[in-house]
Amino acid sequence: MLKIIPERFRQGYRTSAFPRREPQLSARFRGVPQIDGGKCPPTCHYCVDNCPMQAITRVAGKVVIDLGRCLFCAKCVCPHDAISFSADYRLAVRERRQLQLSADDSLELAQPLADELRRLFGRSLKLRQVSAGGCNACEADFNVLGVPTFDLGRFGIQVVASPRHADGLLVTGPVTANMRAALLDTYAALPEPRLVIVSGACAISGGPFAASAVAGNGVDELLPVDLYVPGCPPHPYTLLDGLLRLLGRR
């Protein structure tokens, strides 16, 4: 006990000032892509051909990145300097189509829940997490929100053990054939109204294993989704920002 007290002082106060102050992310962090359409030569397909995830299309001349498929690998960064990755970690949206990011456009970040739901969940949201084929990085970076740095509890958001106690599911992974029934059972056990939050490219689109016959192609083929959080995995601040936006607290 006596040793704990000085150690407590040394370790100091660790909780970040977020959301009052913006977080400091590493200089090489790859956040929201910026597509400068003016730099794209008319017939260029460099990014379309180089994306390993087939996340990029050119629609009516405009480059469009599907952030639901994107793994932020930066293979699309081209010799024309048209695509770059900004430091903006805010990526969460309410609808799948909003993840189609067109050249020279910006993301429509998540709008809050409707008033009634916000009244219910705005100050206390209990989540049940289900990993459905995730690689454990998405799970790890959700788990990390519980450490003192992020201190998820201070926002009234808490992870609960039983779906019966939960207001929503936070799903990671593409929903493998072998996890489909367990996910649906868990969802069925949640009292209504219930939210579904999907975190990571896997849960949005199938992610790196989308081409597999047994891996699955994301949660919204099975359940209605209220919040999409892109990334592989999403940065903890990306997820936290999304959760707070959903609750109308940012």
Binding site: P52, M53, T176, M179
Partner: peptide
Amino acid sequence: LGFQHRGVEHLLVGGPTAATLLQ
């Protein structure tokens, strides 16, 4: 176990492709 099975080894046959590294 087996709940997380994504068919990885199956997917790798015929590679390496651009996606292999990400997988």
